[in-house]
Protein backbone atom coordinates (compact mmCIF):
# COMPACT_ATOMS: atom_id res chain seq x y z
CA UNK A 1 0.00 0.00 0.00
CA UNK A 2 2.84 2.38 0.94
CA UNK A 3 4.44 1.50 -2.40
CA UNK A 4 1.22 2.16 -4.29
CA UNK A 5 0.85 5.58 -2.64
CA UNK A 6 4.48 6.38 -3.40
CA UNK A 7 3.99 5.48 -7.07
CA UNK A 8 0.82 7.54 -7.37
CA UNK A 9 2.60 10.52 -5.84
CA UNK A 10 5.48 10.10 -8.28
CA UNK A 11 3.05 9.93 -11.19
CA UNK A 12 1.34 13.17 -10.17
CA UNK A 13 4.68 14.97 -9.78
CA UNK A 14 5.82 13.80 -13.20
CA UNK A 15 2.42 14.64 -14.65
CA UNK A 16 2.91 18.25 -13.50
CA UNK A 17 6.31 18.22 -15.20
CA UNK A 18 4.91 16.69 -18.37
CA UNK A 19 2.09 19.22 -18.51
CA UNK A 20 4.55 22.04 -17.96
CA UNK A 21 6.63 20.91 -20.92
CA UNK A 22 3.61 20.13 -23.06
CA UNK A 23 2.43 23.73 -22.74
CA UNK A 24 5.81 24.89 -24.02
CA UNK A 25 6.64 22.17 -26.54
CA UNK A 26 3.33 20.62 -27.51
CA UNK A 27 1.16 23.72 -27.67
CA UNK A 28 3.70 26.35 -28.62
CA UNK A 29 6.20 24.25 -30.54
CA UNK A 30 9.18 25.29 -28.40
CA UNK A 31 11.00 22.03 -27.76
CA UNK A 32 12.75 23.08 -24.61
CA UNK A 33 15.43 20.74 -23.32
CA UNK A 34 15.92 22.63 -20.09
CA UNK A 35 12.76 21.67 -18.22
CA UNK A 36 14.73 19.49 -15.80
CA UNK A 37 16.78 22.50 -14.73
CA UNK A 38 13.68 24.38 -13.55
CA UNK A 39 12.57 21.18 -11.85
CA UNK A 40 15.96 21.25 -10.15
CA UNK A 41 15.81 24.92 -9.17
CA UNK A 42 12.46 24.33 -7.47
CA UNK A 43 13.82 21.27 -5.73
CA UNK A 44 17.00 22.99 -4.52
CA UNK A 45 15.15 26.09 -3.37
CA UNK A 46 12.80 24.00 -1.29
CA UNK A 47 15.50 21.70 0.02
CA UNK A 48 17.89 24.48 1.03
CA UNK A 49 15.29 26.70 2.64
CA UNK A 50 13.61 23.95 4.65
CA UNK A 51 16.73 22.11 5.81
CA UNK A 52 19.13 25.00 6.37
CA UNK A 53 16.91 27.89 7.31
CA UNK A 54 13.99 25.96 8.76
CA UNK A 55 11.44 27.75 6.62
CA UNK A 56 8.05 26.07 6.24
CA UNK A 57 7.36 24.26 2.96
CA UNK A 58 4.80 26.82 1.78
CA UNK A 59 7.33 29.68 1.95
CA UNK A 60 10.04 27.60 0.32
CA UNK A 61 7.77 26.79 -2.61
CA UNK A 62 7.05 30.51 -3.05
CA UNK A 63 10.74 31.35 -3.09
CA UNK A 64 11.25 28.48 -5.53
CA UNK A 65 8.62 30.00 -7.82
CA UNK A 66 10.31 33.39 -7.58
CA UNK A 67 13.72 32.01 -8.53
CA UNK A 68 12.40 29.88 -11.39
CA UNK A 69 10.55 32.92 -12.71
CA UNK A 70 13.72 34.99 -12.74
CA UNK A 71 15.91 32.30 -14.25
CA UNK A 72 13.33 31.26 -16.86
CA UNK A 73 12.87 34.92 -17.80
CA UNK A 74 16.57 35.18 -18.62
CA UNK A 75 16.75 31.78 -20.31
CA UNK A 76 13.56 32.49 -22.25
CA UNK A 77 14.72 35.86 -23.53
CA UNK A 78 17.93 34.38 -24.89
CA UNK A 79 16.48 31.17 -26.33
CA UNK A 80 13.60 33.05 -27.97
CA UNK A 81 16.07 34.21 -30.60
CA UNK A 82 16.31 30.68 -31.92
CA UNK A 83 14.02 28.26 -33.66
CA UNK A 84 13.51 24.51 -33.91
CA UNK A 85 16.71 22.51 -33.67
CA UNK A 86 18.80 25.53 -32.68
CA UNK A 87 16.25 26.24 -29.95
CA UNK A 88 16.75 22.68 -28.69
CA UNK A 89 20.50 23.13 -28.77
CA UNK A 90 20.45 26.41 -26.83
CA UNK A 91 18.05 25.14 -24.18
CA UNK A 92 20.14 21.99 -23.93
CA UNK A 93 23.14 24.19 -23.24
CA UNK A 94 21.18 26.00 -20.52
CA UNK A 95 20.33 22.68 -18.91
CA UNK A 96 24.02 21.79 -18.92
CA UNK A 97 24.98 25.18 -17.44
CA UNK A 98 22.42 25.03 -14.66
CA UNK A 99 23.36 21.41 -13.96
CA UNK A 100 26.97 22.55 -13.75
CA UNK A 101 25.95 25.17 -11.20
CA UNK A 102 24.18 22.54 -9.09
CA UNK A 103 27.39 20.49 -9.09
CA UNK A 104 29.89 23.30 -8.61
CA UNK A 105 28.22 25.90 -6.45
CA UNK A 106 29.10 23.84 -3.42
CA UNK A 107 28.56 26.42 -0.71
CA UNK A 108 24.88 26.47 -1.64
CA UNK A 109 24.07 23.09 -3.15
CA UNK A 110 26.66 20.82 -1.46
CA UNK A 111 27.72 19.77 -4.95
CA UNK A 112 27.39 16.13 -5.90
CA UNK A 113 26.94 15.12 -2.24
CA UNK A 114 23.44 16.49 -2.48
CA UNK A 115 21.11 17.58 0.31
CA UNK A 116 19.77 15.12 2.86
CA UNK A 117 16.90 15.03 5.27
CA UNK A 118 14.29 17.12 3.50
CA UNK A 119 11.11 16.96 5.57
CA UNK A 120 7.67 16.34 4.21
CA UNK A 121 5.28 19.12 5.20
CA UNK A 122 2.67 18.07 7.74
CA UNK A 123 -0.68 18.72 6.16
CA UNK A 124 -3.93 18.74 8.14
CA UNK A 125 -2.03 18.07 11.35
CA UNK A 126 -1.57 14.35 11.66
CA UNK A 127 -4.96 13.24 10.48
CA UNK A 128 -3.50 10.84 7.91
CA UNK A 129 -0.27 8.87 7.72
CA UNK A 130 2.55 10.92 6.29
CA UNK A 131 2.53 9.32 2.85
CA UNK A 132 -1.19 9.82 2.33
CA UNK A 133 -1.16 13.42 3.48
CA UNK A 134 1.72 14.06 1.11
CA UNK A 135 -0.19 12.47 -1.75
CA UNK A 136 -3.10 14.77 -0.93
CA UNK A 137 -0.74 17.75 -0.95
CA UNK A 138 0.68 16.77 -4.34
CA UNK A 139 -2.84 16.35 -5.67
CA UNK A 140 -3.77 19.78 -4.29
CA UNK A 141 -1.02 21.20 -6.49
CA UNK A 142 -1.73 18.95 -9.45
CA UNK A 143 -5.44 19.74 -9.76
CA UNK A 144 -5.21 23.53 -10.15
CA UNK A 145 -2.22 23.17 -12.47
CA UNK A 146 -4.22 20.79 -14.63
CA UNK A 147 -7.31 23.03 -14.56
CA UNK A 148 -5.38 26.24 -15.22
CA UNK A 149 -3.65 24.56 -18.15
CA UNK A 150 -6.96 23.20 -19.38
CA UNK A 151 -8.63 26.59 -19.43
CA UNK A 152 -5.50 28.31 -20.65
CA UNK A 153 -5.20 26.19 -23.77
CA UNK A 154 -8.88 26.70 -24.51
CA UNK A 155 -8.60 30.47 -24.05
CA UNK A 156 -7.61 32.97 -26.77
CA UNK A 157 -4.15 32.86 -25.22
CA UNK A 158 -3.91 29.13 -25.94
CA UNK A 159 -5.21 29.59 -29.46
CA UNK A 160 -2.52 32.19 -30.07
CA UNK A 161 0.08 29.73 -28.82
CA UNK A 162 -1.06 27.11 -31.30
CA UNK A 163 -1.06 29.70 -34.06
CA UNK A 164 2.56 30.47 -33.22
CA UNK A 165 3.37 26.76 -33.35
CA UNK A 166 1.77 26.32 -36.77
CA UNK A 167 3.11 29.47 -38.39
CA UNK A 168 4.93 32.19 -36.55
CA UNK A 169 4.81 34.65 -39.43
CA UNK A 170 1.06 34.36 -39.87
CA UNK A 171 0.55 34.75 -36.13
CA UNK A 172 2.64 37.89 -36.28
CA UNK A 173 0.61 39.20 -39.22
CA UNK A 174 -2.52 38.82 -37.13
CA UNK A 175 -0.98 41.18 -34.65
CA UNK A 176 0.14 38.82 -31.94
CA UNK A 177 3.32 39.84 -30.21
CA UNK A 178 4.84 36.39 -30.54
CA UNK A 179 7.92 37.13 -28.42
CA UNK A 180 5.77 38.00 -25.43
CA UNK A 181 3.58 34.95 -25.92
CA UNK A 182 6.56 32.65 -26.17
CA UNK A 183 8.22 34.17 -23.14
CA UNK A 184 5.03 34.02 -21.06
CA UNK A 185 4.33 30.37 -21.75
CA UNK A 186 7.99 29.53 -21.15
CA UNK A 187 7.87 31.17 -17.73
CA UNK A 188 4.52 29.56 -16.89
CA UNK A 189 5.95 26.16 -17.83
CA UNK A 190 9.08 26.82 -15.77
CA UNK A 191 7.05 27.79 -12.70
CA UNK A 192 5.04 24.58 -12.95
CA UNK A 193 8.24 22.57 -13.29
CA UNK A 194 9.66 24.41 -10.27
CA UNK A 195 6.59 23.50 -8.19
CA UNK A 196 7.01 19.88 -9.27
CA UNK A 197 10.64 20.16 -8.14
CA UNK A 198 9.70 21.42 -4.67
CA UNK A 199 7.28 18.52 -4.30
CA UNK A 200 9.87 16.06 -5.60
CA UNK A 201 12.45 17.24 -3.05
CA UNK A 202 10.00 16.65 -0.20
CA UNK A 203 8.96 13.30 -1.58
CA UNK A 204 12.40 11.72 -1.97
CA UNK A 205 13.95 13.67 0.98
CA UNK A 206 17.37 13.55 -0.70
CA UNK A 207 18.32 15.42 -3.86
CA UNK A 208 21.53 15.50 -5.88
CA UNK A 209 22.43 16.98 -9.29
CA UNK A 210 21.95 13.83 -11.46
CA UNK A 211 18.17 14.05 -10.93
CA UNK A 212 18.21 17.30 -12.90
CA UNK A 213 20.63 16.41 -15.67
CA UNK A 214 19.97 16.60 -19.38
CA UNK A 215 18.81 12.98 -19.42
CA UNK A 216 15.94 14.03 -17.17
CA UNK A 217 14.87 16.68 -19.67
CA UNK A 218 14.93 14.01 -22.36
CA UNK A 219 12.86 11.78 -20.08
CA UNK A 220 10.19 14.46 -19.72
CA UNK A 221 10.26 15.06 -23.46
CA UNK A 222 9.71 11.38 -24.17
CA UNK A 223 6.77 11.40 -21.75
CA UNK A 224 4.92 14.07 -23.68
CA UNK A 225 5.85 12.65 -27.07
CA UNK A 226 4.65 9.22 -25.99
CA UNK A 227 1.44 10.48 -24.42
CA UNK A 228 0.83 12.91 -27.23
CA UNK A 229 1.79 16.47 -27.90
CA UNK A 230 -0.76 19.20 -27.42
CA UNK A 231 -3.00 17.12 -25.17
CA UNK A 232 -3.07 17.42 -21.38
CA UNK A 233 -4.46 13.92 -20.79
CA UNK A 234 -1.70 12.68 -23.03
CA UNK A 235 0.84 14.13 -20.61
CA UNK A 236 -0.86 12.39 -17.73
CA UNK A 237 -0.87 9.14 -19.67
CA UNK A 238 2.79 9.52 -20.67
CA UNK A 239 3.73 10.12 -17.03
CA UNK A 240 1.75 7.07 -15.88
CA UNK A 241 3.30 4.93 -18.57
CA UNK A 242 6.93 5.90 -18.16
CA UNK A 243 6.81 5.90 -14.35
CA UNK A 244 5.06 2.56 -14.00
CA UNK A 245 6.89 0.60 -16.68
CA UNK A 246 10.36 0.61 -15.04
CA UNK A 247 8.73 -0.17 -11.69
CA UNK A 248 6.97 -3.06 -13.33
CA UNK A 249 10.30 -4.29 -14.71
CA UNK A 250 11.95 -4.27 -11.31
CA UNK A 251 8.79 -5.89 -9.93
CA UNK A 252 9.04 -8.88 -12.28
CA UNK A 253 12.53 -9.59 -11.07
CA UNK A 254 15.08 -7.41 -12.81
CA UNK A 255 17.70 -5.98 -10.49
CA UNK A 256 17.62 -2.28 -9.61
CA UNK A 257 20.56 -1.45 -11.85
CA UNK A 258 19.22 -3.38 -14.83
CA UNK A 259 15.84 -1.73 -14.34
CA UNK A 260 17.53 1.67 -14.41
CA UNK A 261 19.21 0.80 -17.72
CA UNK A 262 15.93 -0.45 -19.07
CA UNK A 263 14.25 2.80 -18.11
CA UNK A 264 16.70 4.63 -20.34
CA UNK A 265 16.31 2.10 -23.14
CA UNK A 266 12.53 2.36 -22.83
CA UNK A 267 12.36 6.08 -23.18
CA UNK A 268 14.77 5.94 -26.08
CA UNK A 269 12.61 3.30 -27.73
CA UNK A 270 9.47 5.27 -26.96
CA UNK A 271 10.95 8.32 -28.70
CA UNK A 272 12.09 6.40 -31.77
CA UNK A 273 8.97 4.26 -32.18
CA UNK A 274 6.50 7.04 -31.60
CA UNK A 275 8.25 9.34 -34.05
CA UNK A 276 8.50 6.56 -36.64
CA UNK A 277 5.17 4.83 -36.41
CA UNK A 278 2.78 7.00 -34.51
CA UNK A 279 3.95 10.61 -34.80
CA UNK A 280 0.99 11.96 -32.88
CA UNK A 281 1.67 9.92 -29.77
CA UNK A 282 -1.17 8.13 -28.03
CA UNK A 283 -3.58 11.00 -27.54
CA UNK A 284 -1.77 13.83 -29.25
CA UNK A 285 -3.17 16.39 -31.61
CA UNK A 286 0.08 17.60 -33.07
CA UNK A 287 2.24 15.54 -35.35
CA UNK A 288 6.01 15.67 -35.05
Amino acid sequence: MEYFIYLTTTIFIYAILAISLNLVAGYTGLFSMTQASFFGIGAYASAILTTRYGLPFSYSILVGILITTLVSFLVGIISNNFKNDYYMLVTLAFNAIIFGLFVNWQSVTHGSLGIYGIQKPALLGHLFPESISFLILVFIFFLPIYLISYFMVKSPFGIALRAIREDEKVAQLFGYNIKNYKLSIFIIGAIMAGIAGSLFASQVSFISPPSFALSESIFILSMIILGGLSDLNGSLLGAIFLVILPEFLSFIGFSQEVAAQMRQALYGLALVFIILYCPKGILGKYEL
Binding site: F31, I218, Q264, A265, L271, L288
Partner: peptide
Protein backbone atom coordinates in the same frame (compact mmCIF):
# COMPACT_ATOMS: atom_id res chain seq x y z
CA UNK B 1 10.38 15.03 -41.29
CA UNK B 2 11.74 18.34 -40.00
CA UNK B 3 15.33 18.57 -38.82
CA UNK B 4 13.98 18.97 -35.29
CA UNK B 5 12.07 15.70 -35.48
CA UNK B 6 15.20 14.00 -36.76
CA UNK B 7 17.15 15.48 -33.88
CA UNK B 8 14.65 14.18 -31.31
CA UNK B 9 14.69 10.74 -32.92
CA UNK B 10 18.48 10.73 -32.85
CA UNK B 11 18.38 11.47 -29.10
CA UNK B 12 16.23 8.36 -28.80
CA UNK B 13 18.74 6.31 -30.78
CA UNK B 14 21.57 7.52 -28.56
CA UNK B 15 19.61 6.62 -25.40
CA UNK B 16 18.99 3.11 -26.69
CA UNK B 17 22.60 2.44 -27.71
CA UNK B 18 23.91 3.95 -24.48
CA UNK B 19 21.66 1.79 -22.33
CA UNK B 20 22.57 -1.34 -24.27
CA UNK B 21 26.27 -0.60 -23.69
CA UNK B 22 25.60 0.04 -19.99
CA UNK B 23 23.58 -3.16 -19.87
Amino acid sequence: ASSMTMMIASIGVLSIVQSIVAF
